[in-house]
Structure formats: C-alpha cells, structure tokens
Amino acid sequence: MQLNNIKPAEGAKHAKRRVGRGIGSGLGKTAGRGHKGQKSRAGGYHKVGFEGGQMPLQRRLPKRGFKSQTAKFNGEISLAALERLGAAEVDLLTLKQAGLVGELIKNVKVIKSGELKKAVKLTGIAATAGAKAAIEAAGGSLN
C-alpha cells in the first residue's frame, strides 16, 4: 500500500446534490422545494412548533408537574439498611463505599423503615423524627 493508491471506503463519498441546474437533472425549476408557500422562499421558515398562527399544541395543553433539579443530590436510607451495614460510625463516605447511596448524593436522610437494634453514630446525616427516636432508643446518636 502506497499513499498514492489509498481510496475512501466504498460508499463513503457521494456527489453533492446540485439543485436548480436544469430539467435534465431532475432537480430543476422548483429545485425540490415544491410550489409556492413560505418553505419555497429563500430565508422563509418558521419556528419549531409553529402552526401557521393556530394556537400551537404545546400551548393548548395544560401545564403540569415539576421536576426538581436538586432531587438528584438527595438520598435516603432506611433503618433496616443501617442494621445490615453493621458499622458503628456512619457518614456519607461510608454509605457511598457500601453502595447504599449513589455517587452524586450530597445529602442523606434516614427514614423509619425497618428496625435498628445496634447502636449507630451518624455524622453529617439527617433523620426523620421517627428514625431519630429509633436510633436513640437503640443507643445511637446523630451529629
């Protein structure tokens, strides 16, 4: 193989479509734009969703719902999961290493789901009122 006989792959290159170059090309006269109308003119186009002045679909439908952008940074962990973890001291890093919360999580809250029998010291982790009572009843603490 030499540099002078390298060719592009079969079908990789194709001739550019030359419109408006006579009837014989098959793309003469209207040059593939059809007859009249805004889309046939140079520079004539409209916004995405424009329906010719009719109220567009996205404005006819009611507004509904909301998705918080901060929700992806918040995580929760149950008392049952804390029990299974079996660590005496728990912080955000411990939970990430155990795979109980995702890597993006910045704030974690303990929820009262399941039971906790071991004493667990939580650092930098919030808890619901019920979960806090259950943790302190087991001899644990929250910082």
Rank of each mutant, 00 (worst) to 15 (best):
A126K: 15
G11A: 12
K63H: 12
A88M: 05
N107L: 09
S68E: 13
R33Q: 06
L92M: 10
E89T: 12
N107P: 00
M1V: 14
H14D: 09
K63A: 13
G28H: 00
V101K: 06
A126F: 07
L104E: 13
T70P: 01
A134V: 06
L100S: 02
K36C: 02
L61W: 03
K106E: 13
A133S: 14
P8G: 11
L95E: 00
P62L: 13
L100G: 04
R33P: 01
A131C: 10
K36R: 10
N143H: 10
G49K: 10
L82A: 04
I23L: 00
G24H: 01
R18S: 02
A133H: 12
Y45I: 02
K121T: 13
L116V: 11
I111G: 07
M55F: 05
E115R: 15
G37R: 07
L104N: 11
I105R: 05
N143S: 14
G28F: 00
K112P: 05
G75K: 01
G130S: 14
G75L: 03
A133I: 13
A71E: 14
V108K: 06
Q97W: 00
S40C: 04
G24N: 03
V120L: 06
R84S: 13
E51F: 08
T30L: 02
R60A: 15
T30G: 00
I77M: 04
I135A: 09
V19M: 07
Q58M: 11
R18N: 06
P62G: 12
A15M: 06
K67Y: 09
T128S: 15
A81V: 01
N143R: 13
K112R: 12
L92P: 02
R84Q: 15
K36M: 06
L93H: 03
L122C: 08
G24D: 01
A15T: 05
G28K: 01
K16W: 00
K117D: 12
S113M: 14
K13C: 09
L85Q: 07
G34C: 10
G37D: 05
I111R: 14
G65Y: 08
G24S: 04
A131I: 13
G22T: 01
G75R: 00
A81P: 04
Q38R: 11
A119H: 09
V90N: 02
A87Y: 04
R17L: 15
L93F: 03
K109R: 15
R84I: 01
G139D: 10
A31K: 09
G130M: 08
K118Q: 15
A15W: 01
G37A: 03
I105K: 04
Q38I: 13
K132M: 12
H46G: 09
